[in-house]
Structures are given as C-alpha cells and as structure tokens.
C-alpha cells in the first residue's frame, strides 16, 4: 500500500485541531517531496483557519485554496470554484480541511461524489479527548455519525490529536492513546497517527506508533 492516498480529508469536532493537523500534514508531505495542495473548506469559523498559515504554506511551496473572504472579516460562507481543481486534477496530492461538526461538513457534501468515484482518499476523524464535548468514545461516535450523514461520506481512519494546548504533557498524550484505541475498537477504524509537539516527541517516541510531529503551531498571548 502506498503511504499516502491522493486525497486526505480531515474532519471532526470543532476545536479538535483539524486545521493544525491538516497544515502540518501538508508540510510533512511536502518534506517528502510530494506535490501537495490544501483546501480550507471551513465555512463556519471565521476566526482561526488555514488561511492564518498562508504565509508559512506559501514559503514551503504548498498551494492553499480558501475562500477569498477568509480572514477578510467578511462573515460569508462562500467557497471558491478553484476547489474543484483539487478534486479534478489527479496528478497532485490534495488535503481538505473540513469545518467543525456536521455543520462544517455540509460543504464537503458537494465534492463527495467526485472524491468517492476517484476512490483514492481517506477521510480522517480528528479526535481530542480533552475537548469537553468529545470526552467519551460515545460522544465521539455521535459526532462521527453526524458528520458522515451530512458529508455523505464514511470515515476511513482516526487521528488522535488529544492535547491541552501548551500545557500538554507526555503523560497526557500517552493517556489519550487508550481513548483513541477504544474509539478504534468500536468503529473498526485504524488510528492513522497520533500528533505530538516537538517538545515531548522524545519522551513518547518509543511508546506510541505512528507519531506525527506538529512543527507549525499558532500562538496567542
């Protein structure tokens, strides 16, 4: 099996870290020499989104397609036609950053048929056990079901992005693996990777399979 599917989509509960994961995933693919573009499908949250990392992505030669209104303070849920290029042009890798919850996944519905017919994709559920509305596997399942219904697509894997922001410890990450495994058992979906900051990578690298290091992170005062 090849390492990456042609299309990778990240969805999940809002605030689970989808954008952060998607941006870092794109950087990782680029570092492996792959031609990759990223689309910001978030029509819900006008505050934190992929476009905030536009400069960084551009610096690394990663194409970002997002609403021309994103970050412009115009609270308008519109998406550019250019996003179809990620679906239609098959010789470049594509990453989709889907908005939070079922509401955010609404936008994915219109690309779902094309992505499914190409049949070279993975739809990953980003989970953070430290978020208040996804603290039990049952709550995660509920959100997954809502997203699948709205997006008209089924999840193919999980991303364990459990974190407490800057206060995350190695113990927190280790502790979250059990949680992710529980979700994995119930859904039958594999944990594709667990995210970890550079700061605590060394502490957990021998204890968790499939780590992805978060290199680029937004910071607030």
């Amino acid at each position: 099996m090849k390492e990456f599917k042609r299309v990778t989509l990240f969805a999940g509960h809002y605030g689970s870290g989808k954008t952060n994961v998607a941006v870092n995933y794109a950087l990782m693919m680029k570092e492996k020499g792959l031609d990759v573009a990223i689309a910001d499908l978030d029509i819900v949250n006008p505050y934190f989104r992929t476009k905030d990392s536009a400069d960084e992505l551009e610096k690394h030669g990663i194409k970002l397609i997002s609403s021309e209104f994103a970050g412009s303070n115009v609270d308008l849920p519109a998406l550019p036609a250019e996003i179809y290029s990620l679906v239609d042009i098959h010789d470049r890798y594509a990453i989709f950053d889907i908005g939070g919850d079922d509401r955010g996944a609404t936008a994915l519905g219109r690309y779902a048929d094309a992505i499914k017919s190409e049949d070279d994709y993975e739809l990953l559920m980003v989970i953070n056990k430290f978020r208040p509305l996804s603290r039990t596997p049952e709550l995660v399942l509920e959100i997954m079901h809502e997203i699948e219904t709205t997006a008209n697509m089924k999840f193919t894997g999980l991303v364990n992005d459990s974190n407490l922001g800057a206060e995350t410890t190695a113990a927190d990450v280790l502790d979250s693996v059990g949680f992710a495994k529980k979700v994995s058992e119930i859904t039958g979906l594999p944990i594709r990777f667990t995210t970890v900051t550079r700061k605590i990578f060394d502490e957990v690298k021998d204890k968790i399979d499939n780590l992805m290091v978060i290199k680029l992170q937004k910071k607030i005062v």
Binding site: G15, F130, P132, L133, L164, E167
Partner: peptide, 12 residues
C-alpha cells in the same frame, strides 16, 4: 482539565 474555548467555558 479540558481544553475549552472561552465561549464554551461560559456555557459550561
């Protein structure tokens, strides 16, 4: 501890 947005913290 849980990771919360300020708006969520108000609601909870």
């Amino acid at each position: 501890k849980v990771l919360m947005k300020g708006n969520e913290a108000i609601a909870e």
